[in-house]
Write a protein that binds this DNA or RNA. Structure first.
Length: 897
RNA sequence: GCCCAGGUGGCGGAAUUGGUAGACGCGCUAGACUCAGAAUCUAGUGGGGGCAACCUCGUGCUGGUUCGACUCCAGUCCUGGGCACCA
């Protein structure tokens, strides 16, 4: 075959540059260009091949760019993708951008730069950084959630949800931050203040879009059985969904005919012990039940709780507060009149927002009853309710028809009774709440709906999608409760094409989870303008075989996208029940940060601050106190590259004399000054060394602090690999002399063993041990004889998932002309894996004393004899007769005296 | 408080099902090459003892099961993560 003309630097030059020291910069640039220009990793549906879909959680491209911690997962999935490709799989390995979101919008407010500009710029940076790592993405499939061609289909999926009654508008309490002019998520509110800026947050009712994820609670829970995910992630989802079995019970209100209080309880068997009831202060019946005598106290209590955030209420812990409403309810099982209280230990958001209090068998009710001197009755034997609540199972007592029944049976019996009497029923309750789906922000997907003049809400027809954002040049929040879009009448006001009515667009936008809920589906068919994806593409590629991303998305992204996926499944639009078959969470790479303290609490740049090392500072609660003076001080961080190191390696402040710094391990962040950029590491050691090091550091799922010391080791290994093929000393020589064929028997065996081992490690996603086997191969292969060409070729194939640039370069130096990345993975010669003689350890009483060489096929008697004959064994056995001799084939012999 | 994950050399980490603890790499020590350094190569490197052969202790801690335990069981301490009045 004629020499193919690869479009790359080497091809143009006609020959490779003069041989010299390993120079990653030139090699990496050459092959990155080659892969991009030839679209080496472009893939398409091919039913003749098995598929493998390996996906990274796509990033939000922030203005900071990547640090070395981010690509850990990407590098691992890339190695897997490259491995699977060589193993004959048709691999889908795409990348895209989750680009809507608050940071770009905040940046816009501060600088006046349109979020689209910032986003585009950040994407450019991220793409450049990822490409510099040599990741084998099919870049033709790149998606951007802010692209109108993408968000059109996000809106289309919202329409599907709406059509099925799963999207609705409701008035709910939200965290409104007047200073920031926006609603905040619960996670963004800490102790009643905003996380950013420490501004007060109030809970106000606002009309919001909600998604009925609770309809899918049961399936979201049970289908976790179908996926291969880390147990702790499954557990977190289970806890979040929070299924509990119990009963709903209706308590009558004699003074309010027709009204009842409904409670949820997991212990209907304790109904006879319910001696009072408690409503959440927000409960709708509070106002009507409260008697005139109690009204002032109740109103004051309701107002007081309204001011507290849920978090603060919880923080108060065991000290129970509450007030009596003056009303009484009737216990349906024994017709006793019991008082109705309100208390903030009952949460409006869980169950029915009301409870029957059984102080004998619930710790919270017990504490409350004690404080307010309410009666405590024992209805389950086993404890001593005058000392403490007894929440465990036991035998029902003082409970009429339930007396003598064990807890499980009592529950069953009372449930049947409640249903017969029409006073309640067995039910299942979930902690999961419907998903608050709107945000009062600009940089998100507009809702594809019209609010018509007649008060109805109507979906924008599919053929009019997308509804794009209007151009704005001012994103500053101004009025109360006003969204940026509500200030754009030209965009907001429109007309319904069908009825001619005046119509208004929705001024809210979707949260940034929307785009990430389905991007894995778009990757199957990203260029499709007719549909969100073609059914053939979806059926071929789905599900995602391996999904890798941070555990911080355990409940949010992963639960939301599973929900959407199930809705799409019900619509017949996807063929799998679950989107992500196997999930792995990369551990976080941390960075060393260097800390001291000073007394410049106000951050005044002109102030003369007094500085203290950490050893002179003690932490009291949240505040740091300088021990010598007793005054408050503030932590300061020294940039990583400014730290000086003393003679003994002590980190020191760059300018202040004799100020030792404290070394702590922290998440990499700008404020801690401990960010390491991949750009810098690549500039010094190359992308291959960085990739190798991040994989070699340890298992994917384990986090560790970034240490610069380890990279040279990986660089040295690559250099050794380079020298196997390239003669560094004789400039101009294209390649080392290599022995032809597989080499000596020992070399052939080493190669076979390495192939078998590396293959197995990769199947188990353990690149760290695979790399160590390659290191051993490279060290041993030419110890006694010239490296054999066939062995080197196999080695390069195996090296290519980890260090793809160097492997590809050396492959060409061997005279090969096709892409190494598309070569088949080597197969070990099975006959070489079987050793003729094996070494067995010999133990005496379980302690290793010697070892013996025996033929691999030696029978047990021969092995025993050899073991007993071993010199050091004979010494320990002496003239004793072994009680027992245990032979573990291929492993060891244990002689028991 | 509850749930989950994890504790192995100076450091990152290996150790298929209970079967030679510490692979591989870093660091360190010595040597080779060099005028010298860098780079590279070679050897050594868990603690203690011994000239050595070897002996002994050793996988957070305390027990247990077993011929044999980093691995299994019970208890306990520490670290990290999640949840936190969920009726």
């Amino acid at each position: 075959m004629e020499r193919a003309a690869p479009v790359d630097a080497a091809g143009e030059a006609g020959h490779f540059p003069a041989a010299m020291a390993y120079d990653p910069k030139a090699i990496e640039a050459r092959w990155q260009r080659h892969w991009l220009e030839n679209e080496t990793f472009r893939c398409q549906v091919d039913p003749s091949k098995p598929k493998y879909y390996v996906l990274d959680m796509f990033p939000y491209p922030s203005g900071q760019g990547l640090h070395v911690g981010h690509p850990k997962g990407y590098i691992c999935t890339d190695a897997i993708a490259r491995f699977k490709r060589m193993r004959g799989f048709n691999v889908l390995h795409p990348m895209g951008w989750d680009a809507f979101g608050l940071p770009a919008e905040q940046h816009a407010v501060e600088t006046g730069t349109h979020p689209r500009i910032t986003t585009r710029r950040n994407i450019e940076t991220y793409r450049r950084q990822l490409q510099a790592l040599g990741l084998s993405y099919d870049w033709s499939r790149e998606v951007d959630t802010t692209d109108p061609k993408y968000l059109r289909w996000t809106q289309w999926i919202f329409s599907k949800l709406h059509e099925r009654g799963l999207a609705y508008e409701a008035e709910v309490a939200v965290n409104w931050c007047p200073a920031l002019g926006t609603v905040l998520a619960n996670e963004e509110v800490i102790d009643g203040k905003s996380e950013r800026g420490d501004h007060p947050v109030v809970r106000v009712p606002m009309k919001q879009w909600m998604l009925r994820i609770t309809d899918y609670a049961e399936r979201l829970l049970t289908d976790l059985e179908l996926v291969d995910w880390p147990e702790r992630i499954k557990r977190m989802q289970e806890d979040w969904i929070g299924r509990s079995e119990g009963a709903r019970v209706h308590f009558g209100l004699p003074e309010h005919a027709g009204e009842t209080i409904e409670v949820f309880t997991t212990r209907p068997d304790t109904l006879f012990g319910a001696t009072y009831m408690v409503l959440a202060p927000e409960h709708p019946l509070v106002a009507s039940l409260t008697t005139d005598e109690e009204r002032a106290a109740v109103d004051a209590y309701v107002a007081e709780t309204g001011r507290k955030s849920e978090r603060l209420r919880m923080a108060e812990g065991d000290d129970k507060t509450g007030v009596f409403t003056g009303a009484y309810a009737v216990n349906p099982v024994n017709s006793e009149r019991i008082p109705v209280w309100i208390a903030d230990y009952v949460l409006a958001s869980y169950g029915t927002g009301a409870i029957m209090a059984v102080p004998g068998h619930d710790e919270r009710d017990w504490a409350f009853a004690r404080k307010f001197e309410l009666p405590i009755v024992e209805v389950v034997s086993g404890g001593n309710v005058s000392q403490a609540a007894y929440p465990a199972d036991g035998t029902a007592v003082n409970s009429g028809l339930l007396d003598g029944l064990p807890t499980a049976e009592a529950k069953q019996r009372i449930n049947d009774w409640l249903e017969e009497q029409g006073k309640g029923e067995a039910t299942i309750n979930y902690k999961l709440r419907d998903w608050l789906f709107s945000r009062q922000r600009y940089w998100g997907e507009p809702f594809p709906v019209l609010h018509l003049e007649d008060g109805t809400v109507k979906l924008v027809p599919d053929d009019e999608l997308p509804v794009t954002l209007p151009e704005l040049d001012d994103w500053t929040p101004s009025g109360e409760f006003e969204t940026p879009l509500s200030r754009v009448p030209t965009w907001l006001e429109t007309r319904d094409r069908e009825t001619g009515q005046k119509a208004w667009r929705d001024p809210n936008t979707m949260p940034n989870w929307a785009g990430s809920c389905w991007y894995y589906l778009r990757f199957c068919d990203p260029g499709n303008d007719e549909a969100a994806w073609a059914p053939e593409a979806e059926r071929y590629w789905m599900p995602v075989d391996l999904y890798v991303g941070g555990a911080e998305h355990a409940v949010l992204h992963l639960l939301y996208s599973r929900f959407w996926h199930k809705v799409l499944y019900d619509c017949g639009l996807v063929s799998t029940k679950e989107p992500f078959q196997k999930l792995l969470n990369p551990g976080m790479i941390l960075g060393f940060a260097y800390r001291y303290y000073d007394d410049n609490l106000s951050d005044d740049p002109k102030a003369e601050a007094r500085s203290y090392p950490s050893s002179a500072v003690r932490i009291e609660g949240e505040t740091a106190i300088a021990t010598p003076t007793g005054e408050e001080v503030k932590a300061r961080w020294v940039q990583l590259d400014e730290v000086r190191f003393g003679e003994d390696g002590t980190p020191l402040h760059p300018t202040i004399e004799d100020l030792p710094l404290e070394e702590v391990t922290e998440k990499m962040s700008k404020s801690r000054g401990n960010v390491v950029s991949p750009d810098d590491v690549i500039a010094e050691f190359g992308a291959d060394a960085l990739r190798l090091y991040e994989l070699f550091m340890g298992p994917l799922e384990k986090g560790a602090p970034w240490s610069t010391e380890g990279i040279p080791g990986c660089f040295r290994f690559l250099q050794r690999a380079y020298r196997l093929v390239v003669d560094e000393d004789s400039a101009g020589e294209p390649a080392q002399e290599l022995a032809s064929g597989a080499g000596t028997e020992a070399q052939a065996r080493l190669t076979a063993r390495t192939i078998a081992g590396v293959t197995e490690d990769m199947e188990r996603i353990q690149p760290n041990t695979a790399i160590s086997k390659l290191m051993i191969w490279a060290r041993e292969i030419n110890r006694e004889a010239e490296a054999p060409r066939e062995g080197v070729a196999s080695f390069l194939r195996m090296l290519s998932p980890f260090a793809p640039h160097l492997a590809e370069e050396l492959w060409r130096r061997l005279g090969e002309e096709s892409d190494l990345a598309l070569q088949p993975w080597p197969e070990p010669d099975a006959s070489l894996l079987v050793e003729d003689t094996i070494t067995l350890a010999v133990q005496v009483n379980g302690k290793r004393r010697d070892e013996v060489q025996v033929p691999a096929d030696a029978d047990e008697e021969a092995v025993k004899a050899a073991a007993l004959a071993a010199e050091n064994v004979a010494r320990h056995v002496g003239d004793q007769t072994p009680k027992k001799v245990i032979v573990v084939p291929g492993r060891l012999v244990n002689i028991v005296l």
